[in-house]
Design a binder for these strands. Structure first.
Lengths: 196, 196
DNA sequence: GTTAGCATGTAAGGAGTTACATGATTTT
DNA sequence: AAAATCATGTAACTCCTTACATGCTAAC
């Protein structure tokens, strides 16, 4: 994941792998992956879909759902798209432990190879440890030098980070105890409603 | 705070209010306010300082610290700068509850008027409640429809948000119990004392 | 003596948001 | 009948990062 934007590619490709969707619906599903907040805007999503199509990673087909306001355009992964998705899932560059990126990666752990899962979790953990160290250093440095509010904020940040580390420890433990099966039930949520 | 970028203005002005600094040092201090991560880059900071100077909010003076590599440029708030800082501190537009923005605002609570403090804390709280509601809705919607990893992620997000709400409740309570003095160095967070 | 840190800046590019434009359909 | 939601898209703008350029000083 050289470019930061590949996170979005991963998210889109990952969601679309479950079931083909049109842009509007896709954006809503993206919310579950990117977090209800910082979900992407249409002004950003639609051009991106065009781009992914141009790169041959997905196909766009007009689906006539009857007399619709506008023909919905359903996007679907091509074999190249699936390949690229696998590549992105296997990639464990240093950006994989970033807040944003980690969340998306974790959401797709069901399709991620077991060793990769472990590597991502451990990378994320050490990233958080760094953060804990930085906050501890900041706290001891600023003690009595900044007002109590700034200190309280850093203290709270520290505790959050520490809780996050403990959470990861649990995940890592449970990951190690998990059979190496790569099973993922492909719930085919067929996108189409009965016409009325 | 109409523009998102006014957060940076607030951070810079706020830090510079404590003591005049040159860019390099300023950036380090900014780390305590913006969080050790997502501190701004020089490529962003220096032009911004020029801009603030052009707007008359601060003055730039070459400080000769002896035979230095390069004359350090010390930035200092002008009266207009202090005014603007006060305006930003008093502003409680809806962006004031954003993750990023809230952190910066909280860091400067020592210089914020008591009522504004309360408004910001409560705004932040209701923002987080919305988030909790959104996550709960997402969880009940996706139950059994998405794989366990996505669910675990949302569950974790939910718990974090809930803890954040409790934290804010404590802050609000302690804010209410605080004398309305606007004194700068008013650091006595004496709420419920555990038996010590 | 070489690496790391101090110190300031510019130019190019990346990545996203907001505002606008358009129009049908479902809900109230 | 009005308002919200569905649905797609473009253009302008905002704001940040990266890479580059420069050169001193302290530490190893």
């Amino acid at each position: 994941m050289t470019r930061r934007s590949e996170v979005l590619d991963l998210a889109v490709l990952g969601v679309l792998h479950d079931s083909p969707l049109h842009g509007y619906e896709l954006r809503k599903r993206l919310g579950a992956v990117l977090g209800p907040l910082h979900s992407i805007s249409y002004g950003s999503l639609y051009p991106r879909l065009k781009d992914l199509e141009a790169r041959g990673l997905l196909t766009a087909t007009e689906a006539d759902g009857g007399p619709r306001a506008r023909a919905r355009i359903v996007y679907q992964l091509t074999p190249e798209g699936k390949e690229q998705l696998q590549l992105l899932l296997d990639d464990t560059g240093p950006e994989a432990w970033d807040d944003q990126v980690f969340g998306v990666r974790y959401a797709f752990f069901g399709r991620t190879r077991s060793e990769v899962r472990l590597r991502v979790l451990e990378g994320r953990r050490s990233r958080l440890e760094e953060q804990v160290a930085a906050l501890r250093a900041a706290l001891s440095r600023t003690r009595d030098r900044l007002d109590s509010y700034t200190e309280e904020l850093q203290q709270h940040g520290l505790e959050s980070a520490q809780r996050e580390v403990r959470w990861l420890d649990e995940l890592i433990a449970s990951e190690r105890g998990r059979p190496t099966v790569n099973a993922h039930q492909n719930n085919s949520v067929v996108e189409d409603e009965p016409e009325s």
